[in-house]
């Protein structure tokens, strides 16, 4: 299984901080599309994605046990 983390406005839109699904075998772009449809999320397109706390590309494949975080454009500082 895979834990998916939401932050900032994505957390507000999802109504929760995280969900757990089986995403192994999907690439990042496929996972985004899947989550957007399943959870009615409209702003995932503009988010970056991290796999196990490292930024990932759309084509990276998710492995069993990976933690996935959707990272909206950051605004620290």
């Amino acid at each position: 299984m895979n834990k998916l983390l939401f932050f900032a406005h994505l957390k507000d839109e999802a109504g929760k901080e995280s969900i757990t699904i089986d995403a192994a075998g999907k690439n990042v772009a496929e996972l985004k599309a899947f989550v957007a449809e399943q959870h009615g999320m409209t702003k995932l397109d503009s988010a970056m994605t991290a796999i196990n706390e490292e930024f990932a590309e759309d084509s990276d494949i998710i492995q069993e046990g990976d933690t996935i975080a959707f990272i909206p454009p950051v605004s620290g500082g």
């Binding site: 932050f7 900032a8 975080a69 950051v74 620290g76 500082g77």
Partner: peptide, 14 residues
């Protein structure tokens, strides 16, 4: 350092 924080560090402000 501050410019990179604004690019790659996952922190958000409301």
């Amino acid at each position: 350092a501050i410019e990179r924080i604004k690019e790659i560090v996952p922190i958000w402000k409301k």
